[in-house]
Lab assay of single mutants.
Amino acid sequence: IRCIGVSNRDFVEGMSGGTWVDVVLEHGGCVTVMAQDKPTVDIELVTTTVSNMAEVRSYCYEASISDMASDSRCPTQGEAYLDKQSDTQYVCKRTLVDRGWGNGCGLFGKGSLVTCAKFTCSKKMTGKSIQPENLEYRIMLSVHGSQHSGMIVNDTGYETDENRAKVEVTPNSPRAEATLGGFGSLGLDCEPRTGLDFSDLYYLTMNNKHWLVHKEWFHDIPLPWHAGADTGTPHWNNKEALVEFKDAHAKRQTVVVLGSQEGAVHTALAGALEAEMDGAKGKLFSGHLKCRLKMDKLRLKGVSYSLCTAAFTFTKVPAETLHGTVTVEVQYAGTDGPCKIPVQMAVDMQTLTPVGRLITANPVITESTENSKMMLELDPPFGDSYIVIGVGDKKITHHWHRSGSTIGKAFEATVRGAKRMAVLGDTAWDFGSVGGVFNSLGKGIHQIFGAAFKSLFGGMSWFSQILIGTLLVWLGLNTKNGSISLTCLALGGVMIFLSTAVSA
C-alpha cells in the first residue's frame, strides 16, 4: 500500500470489461488503480535517471590570480610587451599612462603600459546536455494484498515479495511487465516523455548541487567559461569578468580578483528545477510519464477462499488518510488461513446495510499462523458509518465519521480527471477507425466523469442509474429551450454510458 502517505494521489477506475487503462505517473504523486474483478494496485514513479550526459560548457565562479607582471614604455618608444601576453592562462590589459620627467621619461606624453596576471579557477559549475534516449524511469508497484503497516513504502525485498514489484522503462524499451506472483502480471506500455523539453534544458552542477536550467539563461551567464570537458589546462574565455584592473600608474597597475560568485548564482537559480546525482547518473524529480496498463493477466487472489471465522482485533486505531479513506490494521487469532476477511461498512448496526467501498479488493489472510496481521483500506461514505470486521458474535466494529460532501468530492474528481486527460493529450485517442474513435470517446468520458459518477451514484443499482439517464434524455427531447435540451441530452447520455461502463 504505497499511496496512503502521498498527498498527491489519483484514483483511476477501469471500465467494466476493459483490459487496459491509461494513467499519468508523476514525481511526488501516486496512482491507485481499481477495476472490477482485479486486485487494487498502487503505482508510483520513484526516480527518473539520466546517463551519458555530455559537458557543454563550464563557468568559473571563484578564481585566484598570481605571478603579476607589468612592462611600460616612454612616449615614442613603441608598445610595451610581455611574453605572458601569448599565454592563455594569463589575463592581460594594455593601456596608456601619462609619462614625463617625473617618472623617468625625457618627453612628456602618453606611454604604453601592459599588465598580466595568471588566472586560476578555484571553483566552477558545469552544464551538461541531456539526450531523451538516455532517460530511465523506475516504477514501483504494490498490490493491496496481505501486507501490514511495516511494509508500507518499503522498497527492500521486492524481489521475493509477490505484493510488490519494480520495473524500469526507457525510450528504447518502453514496454515492461511486472510479475506479482499469485496476482498474475501487469503489463506497462509507457510513452517516455517527461513533459520537459530537454532540447531547451541543461543539467547544471555547482558545488555538489544540481538544477535543470534553460539553455539561453545558461549561455548568457557573465562569467569566465570554457567549452567542452575539462582537459586539465582549460582555456578560459572572458577571464576579465572576475578580474579587475585598478587605476594605472606610470610603471605598474594593481590587479585584484573578485570574490566568489556562488551567492549571486544561487539567487539567479531561484525557482529552477532541482535535481540530484546518483553516482555518474543524474536524478530528476520533475515531469511525468504516461503509461497504458494492460490488466488482462491480472487476477484476484483468494476468490475461492472461505470466510475467516475466528476473532479479529484492531492492532491500531483506524486512521484517516490524506485522501479521506480509512486504513485499518487487524490481527487474526485463527489458524484456518488462508481465508477471506469479512469486512464491510454499514450505516447502522441493526440492518448492516453496506455503504462505501473497499479500496483493498478481496482482502485475505494468507498465513495459517496465529496472530497474522493484515492492513486494508476503505472508502467510507460522508457522515457517520460503522466499520464491521468478522462474522457472528466475534465481529468487531468501529464508529467512523467522514466530513465533507459527495458533491465536493465529485467536483474534485472531475477536475482531476480533466487534468489527466489534458496530460494524456492525443495519445488517449485513436482515429484509425470508426470503432477506435468511439472507443476513445468512451475512454475520455470515463477518465473525466467516472470518479464523479461513482461518488454521486455508486450506491444505486445499474438499472436505477439507466432509468435516471433515460429520464434526462426524455426531458431533453421534450424541452423547447435549446440549451436546457442539449444539457439534459448530454447528461442523460453520459449517465447511461457510465452506468453500463463503470464497474460497481
Score class of each variant (00 low, 15 high):
Val97Arg: 01
Ile43Ala: 01
Lys395Asn: 03
Asp430Phe: 07
Tyr158Met: 02
Gly390Pro: 03
Leu269Thr: 10
Leu186Asn: 03
Leu258Gln: 03
Thr351Arg: 15
Val330Met: 12
Thr313Arg: 05
Tyr61Asp: 06
Val56Ser: 00
Gly392Glu: 06
Ser385Thr: 05
Thr194Cys: 13
Gly145Ser: 14
Thr327Arg: 01
Val243Gln: 03
Ser199Asn: 02
Met140Trp: 05
Arg420Lys: 13
Val12Asn: 06
Leu113Glu: 02
Val153Pro: 10
Tyr61Gln: 06
Glu168Asn: 01
Pro380Lys: 13
Lys340Cys: 07
Leu424Trp: 09
Val502Asn: 12
Asp230Glu: 14
Leu472Tyr: 04
Val257Pro: 03
Ala117Asn: 05
Met34Trp: 08
Lys419His: 13
Ala248Tyr: 05
Ala333Trp: 03
Val355Ala: 15
Asp278Asn: 11
Ala54His: 04
His210Glu: 06
Ser433Ala: 01
Pro363Phe: 06
Pro224Asp: 08
Val343Tyr: 01
Gly228Ile: 06
Val46Ser: 10
Gly390Ile: 05
Glu159Asn: 02
Pro174Arg: 02
Leu471Lys: 08
Leu298Pro: 09
Gly337Leu: 10
Glu79Ile: 11
Ser483Asp: 08
Ser499Tyr: 10
Val24His: 07
Val328Gly: 01
Gly408His: 12
Leu491Phe: 08
Ile387Leu: 02
Tyr202Asn: 10
Thr233Gln: 01
Cys92Gly: 08
Thr500Lys: 15
Glu177Ser: 04
Phe453Trp: 11
Ala80Ser: 01
Pro222Asn: 10
His249Met: 12
Met34Gln: 08
Gln447Tyr: 08
Gln131Val: 03
Met125Arg: 03
Thr231Pro: 09
Gly28Leu: 00
Glu262Arg: 05
Ile221Gln: 07
Gly390Trp: 08
Thr205Tyr: 02
Glu79Lys: 11
Val143Arg: 00
Ala346His: 12
Asp22Met: 10
Asn103Pro: 02
Arg292Val: 06
Gly29Asn: 00
Thr397Pro: 00
Thr231Gln: 09
Trp211Ile: 08
Met125Cys: 11
Ala501Leu: 01
Ser503Ile: 02
Lys110Gln: 07
Gln261Arg: 11
Ile407Ala: 04
Thr325Trp: 11
Ser368His: 04
Gly287His: 00
Ser372Met: 10
Ile365Leu: 12
Val328Thr: 14
Ile496Phe: 15
Ser199Glu: 15
Gly450Cys: 11
Gly324Asp: 11
Thr313Ile: 12
Gly404Pro: 04
Leu441Asp: 06
Thr32Met: 08
Glu79Asn: 10
Gly195Leu: 06
Phe497Lys: 11
Gly392Ser: 11
Thr414Gln: 10
Leu186Pro: 01
Ser499Trp: 13
His219Gln: 14
Val31Gly: 00
Asn154Glu: 14
Met34Tyr: 10
Thr160Gly: 00
Lys209Tyr: 06
Ala490Trp: 13
Ser461Met: 11
Val6Asp: 06
Thr126Gln: 11
Val97Ser: 06
Ser86Gln: 15
Val21Trp: 05
Lys38Val: 06
Glu412Asp: 06
Ser146Ile: 02
Met206Arg: 02
Phe285Asn: 06
Leu201Thr: 07
Leu358Gly: 01
Asp296Glu: 12
Ala250Val: 11
Thr309Leu: 13
Ala361Val: 09
Ile139Tyr: 06
Glu159Arg: 02
Arg416Asn: 04
Val494Phe: 13
Val50Lys: 04
Ser58Ala: 15
Leu477Thr: 13
Ile365Cys: 04
Gly279Trp: 03
Leu186Gly: 02
Gly444Phe: 07
Lys128Trp: 11
Lys395Ile: 05
Gly106Lys: 00
Asp155Val: 09
Gly271Ala: 05
Leu201Trp: 01
Ser485Cys: 15
Glu136Cys: 15
Ser112Cys: 14
Val114Gln: 04
Ala241Trp: 13
Ser70Arg: 01
Ile445Met: 14
Ile445Leu: 15
Gln77Val: 04
Glu274Lys: 06
Ser66Gly: 07
Val303Met: 15
Ala117Asp: 02
Leu269His: 12
Thr321Met: 10
Arg2Lys: 11
Ala275Ile: 02
Thr32His: 02
Val33Leu: 15
Leu204Asn: 10
Lys215Thr: 09
Gly417Asn: 08
Asp197Trp: 11
Lys283Glu: 15
Thr233His: 13
Leu82Phe: 11
Lys124Leu: 11
Gly187Pro: 00
Val143Ile: 08
Glu159Ile: 02
Gly232His: 05
Ala248His: 08
Phe411Thr: 05
Gln131Thr: 14
Glu276Pro: 01
Gly181Asn: 14
Ile496Pro: 03
Ala319Ile: 02
Ser503Asn: 13
Lys394Glu: 13
Leu196Lys: 01
Ala490His: 10
Thr313Trp: 06
Ile468Ser: 14
Gly111Trp: 01
Asn362Ile: 09
His27Asp: 11
Phe431Met: 13
His144Asn: 10
Gly435Pro: 00
Arg292Trp: 01
Ala250His: 06
His226Lys: 00
Ala361Arg: 00
Asn172Trp: 11
Thr309Asp: 10
Ile407Glu: 05
Ala178Val: 15
Ser503Gln: 15
Gly492Tyr: 03
Phe285His: 12
Leu472Gly: 02
Met68Asp: 03
Lys123Ser: 12
Lys215Trp: 11
Gly469Ile: 09
Val326Arg: 00
Met151Asn: 07
Phe218Leu: 12
His266Leu: 14
Ser199Trp: 02
Ala178Cys: 06
Gly157Gln: 09
Thr315Pro: 01
Ser66Phe: 07
Lys283Pro: 00
Thr267Gly: 02
Val23His: 04
Met374Thr: 14
His226Met: 04
Gly404Thr: 04
Gly279Ser: 15
Ile4Asn: 13
Gly435Ser: 05
Gly334Leu: 01
Pro381Asp: 06
Glu79Leu: 03
Ser64Gly: 10
Thr353Ile: 14
Leu25Phe: 03
Ser503His: 04
His214Lys: 08
Gln344Leu: 09
Gln331Lys: 12
Ala333Asp: 00
Glu370Gln: 05
Ser304Glu: 00
Glu191Cys: 10
Asp37Phe: 07
Gln147Ala: 02
Thr351Glu: 00
Val434Tyr: 09
Leu467Glu: 06
Pro132Asn: 09
Val265Phe: 07
Ile389Gln: 11
Val12Phe: 06
Val364Ser: 00
Leu201Gly: 00
His148Lys: 04
Ser64Glu: 05
Ala241Gln: 03
Thr254Arg: 00
